[in-house]
C-alpha cells in the first residue's frame, strides 16, 4: 500500500504520483498522512483506486475526481469534489462551502455538516449529507440528487433547474422558483438506493420531503421586460 506522509513529501509529489497511475494499476489503496489542511489533495485523479486521507484537507480536495474513491478522515475546506465526474468521495467530518460544486457524476457523502452553497450548480452528482447544509445550497443546481438528513439553511434551491432535493429536517427558507413537491414512489426508490450507497441505516425514505424547480424561471416572460 503506497503511503505518503505530507510532513515529509510534498503535495505535488503525491498528486503527480496519483496522476501517473494507469487504469490497470495494482497500487489500489493509497494512504495520506499529515494533510494539515493542504489544498487540492488528490485532485484530478483518474484511476479506480482508493485514497485515504488521515486528517483535515483544505480547498478542492478530490476536485475533478474520476473513478477514484477518496476517503477523508477529517474535515474538508471549500469545494470538496468540485466538478467530480465519477467515483466516490466520503468525508467523515464536516465540509466547508461549495461542496460538490458543478459536479457531473459520482457520489459525495458527508458524514457531518456542509456549510453554505452545498451542491451549487451541481450537474448530475449525487450528494448525501448526514448532518445539515448551510444557506444558498443547490443554487442553480441542474441535475442529480441532493439528500440531507438534517436541516437546510436559507434560500434552498434558488433558481433551481432539475436537481431533486430531499430534506429530512427543517428548511429555513426556499429560494426563488424552488417549491416543495410530492414524494412519489419513484423518488422513494432513488432515496432508498442513495441511502444504501451512503451507508445510512434505519432511515426511511418517507421521512424526507422533496423540493424542486417550479420551472417558472425557465423562459423569459415578456411581462417582465420592464424589469430590465
Amino acid at each position: 500500500m503506497p503511503a505518503f506522509d505530507l510532513a515529509v513529501t510534498t503535495r505535488r509529489e503525491l498528486n503527480a504520483a496519483l496522476h501517473a497511475l494507469p487504469a490497470n494499476t495494482n497500487e489500489t489503496h493509497w494512504h495520506v498522512a499529515n494533510p494539515e489542511g493542504a489544498h487540492a489533495l488528490a485532485a484530478g485523479v483518474n484511476a479506480p483506486v482508493t485514497i485515504e486521507i488521515d486528517g483535515h484537507a483544505g480547498y478542492y480536495c478530490a476536485g475533478m475526481n474520476q473513478l477514484a474513491t477518496v476517503i477523508v478522515n477529517g474535515n474538508v475546506g471549500v469545494g470538496v469534489a468540485e466538478n467530480m465526474m465519477s467515483g466516490r468521495v466520503h468525508v467523515k467530518g464536516d465540509a466547508s462551502q461549495a461542496a460538490g460544486a458543478t459536479a457531473h457524476g459520482g457520489l459525495l457523502v458527508i458524514d457531518g455538516n456542509a456549510s453554505a452553497r452545498c451542491g451549487i450548480s451541481m450537474k448530475g452528482v449525487d450528494i448525501v449529507v448526514k448532518g445539515s447544509i448551510g444557506p444558498m445550497s443547490a443554487f442553480m443546481a441542474q441535475a442529480g440528487n441532493l439528500v440531507v438528513l438534517g436541516d437546510a439553511g436559507e434560500a434552498l434551491g434558488d433558481s433551481l433547474y432539475e436537481t431533486r432535493i430531499f430534506v429530512r429536517g427543517a428548511v429555513k427558507s426556499l429560494g426563488a422558483d424552488c417549491i416543495e413537491k410530492e414524494l412519489r414512489p419513484e423518488h422513494e426508490e432513488i432515496l432508498t438506493k442513495l441511502l444504501l450507497d451512503a451507508g445510512v441505516e434505519g432511515v426511511s425514505p418517507q421521512e424526507f420531503r422533496r423540493y424542486g424547480s417550479a420551472r417558472g424561471l425557465y423562459n423569459f416572460h415578456v411581462d417582465n421586460a420592464s424589469a430590465y
Binding site: E36, G37, H56, G58, Y59, N75, G77, S96, Q97, A116
Partner: peptide, 22 residues
Amino acid sequence: SEYRALVGLPGIEQARIFEPEP
C-alpha cells in the same frame, strides 16, 4: 481564513472546529 492556519495550535485535534455563520 483557512484551517491550515490553526494546525499548530495546542490541542487542535480535540478542538471544536466550526465555520462562523453568515
